[in-house]
Amino acid sequence: MGCNIEEYEDYILSYVGQKKGLYGVGFLIKKSFKDKILNFTGISDRVAMLQIKLENQTLSVIQVYAPTERSPDTEVEEFYNNLRQAHNLTEGNVLIIGDFNAKIGQCKSEENIVLGKYGSAKRGFNELKLYKSWIQNLETNHNTTKTRQDILEHATSYYRQLYAKRDEDSEEKDNETEVLQHTTVKLIDEKELYQVIKKLKTQKSPGSDGISNEALKLGTPVLLSHLTQLFNMVLAEEIVPKQWCTSEIVLLYKKGNPKDIGNYRPISLLNSIYKLFAAVLLQRIERDIEKGQTIEQAGFRSGFNTLDHIQTQSV
């Protein structure tokens, strides 16, 4: 529980709650509106606010779950104080929605169409199992980021400085490359590519193109010839598509203060088609690479284990 933003395949869930199964409010947002989300603020387990950018206007949506008339006065007063706090944070047009626990009379039969066929809590629970959590905010020089754009800019600045070359004098050495003799590369045939596609692992995050390994596997009958033609074109021209040089970076929380950018590990999600092309090349050269490994290299090798060195020393 707590205040979280979770990204699923088709939608984004942002919510706030203190106790499982008790109170809690949130928003279910279509994935197509992802880049329009400006901010999500959880005021309490009864009040939350979402800000989105629609064309040239900002829309602030306040979601509420009001106490019932049987609730203590202190609880009711706290709810309205939280509602005022949320309203003070709004910008642009304001929309207040949710459950005010107000009775307006007998329910009409045609009002049942509001739930529709998606009114099943069980189905909703099953679809909430796989997700990516969003970073709520980060601390920057004793300040706290307020929007997703602030978080993006802070993370970009942090990792740009972290991975910058510290020793400019070594730049010339880095540019030194060994010139290899040019050889003709055998073209990729459909059978070779098909064998690699069959080995693709499922349930893997795609890159910026959104193409998953599942899509490549299911679409093999249609895609096989086109992918083979594309890969051979890359081999012949020795130029890769620009999209293959783009990755989507995801930050994985490790431990410590979740508001400290240094406590996250950046993971680059590459396009699946690029990884498929690389897998074909790896299959061709992995035997030669294995032959060149020394006996001391036990890590990251098939059939070897770093425990082999420990057992050798024990003897």
Rank of each mutant, 00 (worst) to 15 (best):
G292E: 13
Q161D: 15
K173C: 06
V315E: 02
K242D: 14
V16T: 13
N263Y: 12
S109L: 07
T312E: 03
Y274M: 06
L193S: 05
L180A: 15
V16P: 00
A236R: 15
E192L: 06
Q161T: 12
I96Y: 01
W134N: 11
K108L: 15
K173W: 10
S272Y: 06
K204I: 01
T144N: 10
P206L: 01
L180S: 12
E214A: 13
V280K: 02
S44T: 10
N4L: 01
A164R: 10
S109V: 11
A279N: 11
L276I: 02
F300C: 09
A278I: 00
G119D: 08
N141A: 09
A278G: 03
T184Q: 13
T58R: 08
I96N: 01
V250M: 02
D150T: 04
E172Y: 11
D189W: 11
Q136F: 04
N88T: 13
Q313W: 11
N39V: 07
A236E: 15
T294H: 12
A121L: 09
E290T: 14
D209Q: 11
L224K: 06
S120K: 12
Q136C: 04
S205H: 09
V64W: 00
Q203R: 10
R287N: 15
K173H: 12
F33A: 10
Y158N: 11
K132R: 13
